[in-house]
Design a binder for these strands. Structure first.
Ligand SMILES: [Mn+2]
Ligand SMILES: [Mn+2]
Ligand SMILES: [Zn+2]
Ligand SMILES: [Zn+2]
Lengths: 146, 146
DNA sequence: GAGCGGGACGCAACCGAATTGCATCTGCAC
DNA sequence: GTGCAGATGCAATTCGGTTGCGTCCCGCTC
């Protein structure tokens, strides 16, 4: 796995800083994957992340999956379920910690966070049910698809 | 595919009526699958539907998938994307035509429609984006899981 | 009640995302 | 520098869903 464009060194440094700050073991795959997410302007699939990795550091597919899981449990990234049954991943910016909505283009699959849209804080659920998280996804067409 | 419990004949008759009313060809698999959905009190996975089918009418997996797709395009059922990357299906009752939210138990996967919760009619999306559908899913624990 | 034609079905092969098992390697605390 | 828990690589596997194709049968016509 690897591709053409080099990751800006700044993003790699930021990734390392975040991993260290979380008190976690620093490895090349972890740094590389997180750097890709930090550099992305939209949610990325596992496949997109794999091919965005710098060619110098080949990372196994399975490792990418494991790093992503680990980033999610750590809170450094969040995972968005897609209509096409694939997860997409975004680095959790400091300014986007709260619950928020997502937009997915039904034609090209492009997915972005909608920071402006607040998810309804209170929903009516049946007796005995315990709501924990609200997922709000807007489907439609992105700017380049309509 | 087939299991132990017989489908109430009333549901089979209702299924036939709905298919006829839609001006579609009436077949045993279609009747059987729709009857299962009409009888269900919650959203069912493809697998659950398969094993809920009356044993007398064996239906191929692929046919179940195709019937479900067909029911969805016909508007007789709707499909709910799950956190576990599987679709769940519900018959679209006459009284639940509008957009509505869903609840999914994060422990047992049980999924139900939340008729009472309306999805936000208007959401702010980036310039040039065209919203078309809003998906609202509440995650949490169902009555028997907490 | 035959005859017919297009859509529906069954079967087998396939696909792609994600997971698991296991041997090997390595970051880092000491 | 050493030791070891934890991380990685590789191969195999699972699993939900799809595709291709030959056969079947629903429903219209006469
Ligand atoms: Mn987001
Ligand atoms: Mn519903
Ligand atoms: Zn698009
Ligand atoms: Zn439950």
């Amino acid at each position: 796995m690897g591709n053409a464009t080099l990751r800006p060194p700044a993003k790699a440094a930021a990734a390392q800083r975040l991993i260290r700050a979380a008190g976690q073991r620093l490895t090349a795959p972890r740094t590389a994957v997180l750097a890709v997410l930090l550099d992305a302007k939209r949610a990325l699939t596992h496949h997109e992340i794999g091919s965005a990795l710098a060619p110098g550091v080949p990372v196994d597919r399975v490792t990418v999956y494991r790093v992503l899981d680990w980033l999610v449990t750590l809170g450094l990234a969040h995972r968005i379920p897609g209509e096409d049954r694939t997860w997409r991943f975004v680095a959790s910016r400091v300014d986007s910690h709260g619950p928020h909505a997502h937009f997915t283009c039904s034609r090209c699959g492009k997915t972005v966070c909608l920071e402006a849209v607040a998810t309804p804080p209170d929903v009516k659920v049946p007796r005995g049910f315990l709501p924990q998280k609200v997922e709000l996804t807007v489907q439609g067409l992105c700017a380049s698809c309509h």
